[in-house]
Design a protein around this nucleic acid. Structure first.
Lengths: 143, 143
DNA sequence: CTACCTGCAAAAAATTTGCATGATG
DNA sequence: CATCATGCAAATTTTTTGCAGGTAG
C-alpha cells in the first residue's frame, strides 16, 4: 500500500483497481508524466484502463491535494505526487532536464513574504531555469 | 511606441498592424490574459484580426523573450510582457486574485541555489499561494 | 520585389462529458 | 444494494497548420 492509496482511504476516495494502479505508477515515477504518458504506463499493466479514467483520476487526486499539477514544459499538464517530501525544480534551459532540490531558506523566505502581503502561505511553486556552468561537473539528473 | 514594439524593432520582427495592436493591448494590460481574451480585446479596436494571428504572435513574442507564458490557473495559457520590471506572483487561494510582488532577497537566494547545483540562473518562476490573514487588511489587487 | 504575415477553415492536440454498465464499501 | 466509477465515443476546448493572397522593409 503506497502513500497515495493511504491518502485515498483517509479521504474516502473509493479505491478501485484503476485508481490503485494509477497511484502505483505515480508513486514509482521519478519524472513528471502527463496524462497520455501515465496512460501508456498504466496500460502496460492493465490494458483495460481508458484515457478518460486517467484524466478523471488525476483531476480528482489533484483536487484532493494528492497530486501536484505542473506546467514546466509546453503542451499537456504534468503530474507528481504531493506525497514526496516537498521540493522545487531547476530546469536545464538547454536540455529540458528537470533537477529536484530542496532549500529551507527559500521556504522560510516565502512564508515571510506572504505574511508581509497579508497572507498565510498555503503552497508555492518555484522553478529555476539555468544553464550548466562550464568546468564544474555537478547536478543530479531527473526526468 | 511601447516597449514591445521597441523590442520587435531591435530583433527584426516585422511590425505589422496586427502585431502593433497586440503589443499595445498587452502593454496596457494589468492582468494576464489568455489568447482568447487577448483576441477579444484586440478585436474591439480592429475587427479584422484573427485568433490564429493572436496565437502566432504570442508564440513568436514568447520565443523572442518579449512575453512570459504563465500557467497559473487551469485552462489556457496566459501571457504577460517581460518588459515590466521583474516580479513574482502571489495568488489568493480563495479568490484566484493575482498579486504581484518583488523581493530582492529571493532573487539573490535563487541565484545562489542555482550556482550550488552547478548552474547559471537564466530565469525563474515563483508563485505563492496564500489565504488572506484576518484582521490585517493589506495587499493590492491585480487581475 | 521578396520574404514574411495574415485570414480562413480544417486539423490536431488536450481535456471533458453523457450514458449504460459494473464494481466498491 | 445504493452510490459512485468506468469505458466508450462524441463533444469541447485549446492550439496549430496549409494555402492563397497581402504587406512591410
Amino acid at each position: 500500500m503506497n502513500v497515495i492509496e493511504a491518502k485515498c482511504r483517509g479521504r474516502g476516495i473509493r479505491l478501485t483497481g484503476q485508481r490503485r494502479l494509477i497511484a502505483q505508477v505515480l508513486s514509482e515515477a521519478t519524472d513528471h508524466p502527463d496524462a497520455a504518458e501515465l496512460h501508456r504506463r498504466v496500460v502496460q499493466r492493465d490494458a483495460g484502463i481508458s484515457l478518460a479514467t486517467v484524466y478523471r483520476t488525476v483531476k480528482r487526486f489533484e483536487a484532493e491535494g494528492i497530486l501536484e499539477k505542473h506546467g514546466f514544459h509546453d503542451g499537456p499538464a504534468r503530474y507528481e505526487p504531493t506525497s514526496k517530501a516537498h521540493h522545487d525544480h531547476l530546469i536545464d534551459a538547454d536540455t529540458g532536464l528537470v533537477i529536484e532540490f530542496k532549500n529551507e531558506a527559500v521556504e522560510e523566505l516565502q512564508r515571510e513574504i506572504a505574511r508581509q502581503l497579508g497572507f498565510d502561505l498555503v503552497g508555492h511553486r518555484l522553478v529555476l531555469y539555468g544553464r550548466r556552468l562550464k568546468g564544474k561537473g555537478r547536478g543530479k539528473s531527473k526526468g
